[in-house]
Simulated assay, not measured.
Amino acid sequence: MSRTTTGTGSADGLHLPHGSTARGPYALDIDPGRAGWTHSSLRIVALEPGGTHTFDSGDSEWLVVPLNGACTVTAGDDVLPLDGRPDVFASVTDFAYVPRDTHTQIASGAGGRFALAGAKCERRLPARYGPAPEVPVEDRGSGDCARRVRNFAAAGTFDCDTLIAVEVVTPGGNWSSYPPHKHDENRPGEETELEEIYYFEIEGTGGFGYQRVSPSREGGADVLAEVRTGDTVLVPDGWHGPSISQPGHDMYYLNVMAGPGEREWRIRFHPDHTEGYR
C-alpha cells in the first residue's frame, strides 16, 4: 500500500502538521528514525530573549539557519555570530556549519527561531560561517511558475559531506517544485538518491498552500496536502511537485536533502509534465 496522506494530513503520514513532531526543546524534530529513512534530519528551536540551546551533533553534520532573529553559534572552540534576518521572506540569511561529534551552543540575545538542518555523514569537516552576501540566488521559471531559489548549501556551493539545503520563495498564486521531479534512484550521471524534507512557512494570516507527491513506483509515496506555516512534508521517494501558493500569500520552504550516494542534486523530470513549462 502507498504511504499516503491527504487533506490536513496526520502525524503518522508524510504530511506532518505544525506541532505534530514537537519533542523536548524542539518545536519540530524529525530524525531518520521518525522519518523512516537513514540520513536527513530537521529541527526547529525557538529561543526567548537571552535564551540558549545546547546539543551534541553526534554522527551528523548540521547547519544552523536563522528563520528569524540573530544568534551566536559556539561549535567546540569556534564562535560564529549570525546576524540572521527579520523573517524568511525578508532576505537570505547567514548561517553556521556544525561538524559531527561537536558540542554546540546556540545563544540569542533578542530571541528568535532557528532551523537545524542535518544529515548523517562520515567526514568531520571544520566549523564554518556562511555569509549571506555569498549565497547564490537563482530566479527559476517564469510567469506563474516563477520562484526564487536561495542555494545557500547546494551541492557545489557550500562544502558539506552529505547535506544539501536550499530555500525557495514562491510568489502568491504561483507554482514551484515544477515540473514534478524525482531523485529516488542512483543512476550515474542522471539521478541521485536523496531523502528530502520540505518545511513550509506562508506569508500573512490564514495563508496556505498545497504540496503534491505522486508515486514513482508501486507502493510509493502519495501525498496531496494543504500546508500551512510550520507544516512539513517528507519525500522518501516519488515525483514531487507542484508546490502551490495561495494568491496573495507568498510561500517559503526549506529543503533538506541527503542520501547514500555522491553529494549531487541530479533529478529526473516527470515526462508527462514538461511540455509548455516556462
Rank of each mutant, 00 (worst) to 15 (best):
M1I: 11
T5D: 04
T6N: 09
T8K: 14
S10P: 05
L14A: 01
L16W: 07
L16P: 06
P17Y: 02
T21V: 06
Y26T: 04
D29A: 15
G33T: 12
G36Q: 11
W37I: 01
T38G: 11
S40A: 15
L42G: 06
E48I: 10
P49D: 14
P49H: 14
G50C: 03
G51R: 11
T52V: 03
T54L: 07
F55P: 15
W62C: 01
V65I: 12
L67C: 14
G69Y: 06
T72K: 08
T72G: 12
V73Q: 06
V73M: 11
P81S: 12
L82T: 01
G84R: 02
G84Q: 01
P86D: 15
P86M: 14
S91M: 08
V92W: 13
V98P: 00
V98Q: 02
T102N: 13
Q105C: 03
A107F: 09
S108T: 03
A110K: 05
G111H: 04
A117C: 10
A119G: 13
R124Q: 13
L125Q: 15
L125I: 11
P126Y: 05
R128A: 08
Y129N: 14
G130R: 07
A132T: 07
P133D: 09
P133G: 08
E134P: 02
V135Y: 13
V137Y: 05
V137H: 02
E138C: 14
E138D: 14
R140N: 08
R140T: 10
S142L: 08
A146K: 15
R147P: 07
R150Q: 13
F158C: 00
D161E: 09
I164G: 03
A165S: 12
A165D: 05
A165P: 03
A165V: 15
V166F: 06
V169E: 13
P171F: 02
G172E: 06
G172Y: 06
G173C: 07
W175P: 02
Y178A: 10
P179H: 09
H181A: 11
G189T: 04
E191L: 12
E196K: 04
F200Q: 01
E201S: 00
E203I: 01
E203T: 00
G207I: 02
F208P: 03
G209W: 01
P215S: 06
S216K: 03
E218G: 10
G230M: 13
D231H: 07
D231F: 01
V233D: 00
L234Y: 04
W239H: 02
H240S: 11
H240F: 15
H240E: 08
S243N: 11
I244W: 06
Y253S: 04
N255R: 07
M257R: 01
G259C: 08
G261L: 14
E262H: 15
E264C: 03
W265Y: 05
P271Y: 09
E275Y: 12
Y277H: 10
R278Y: 10
R278L: 12
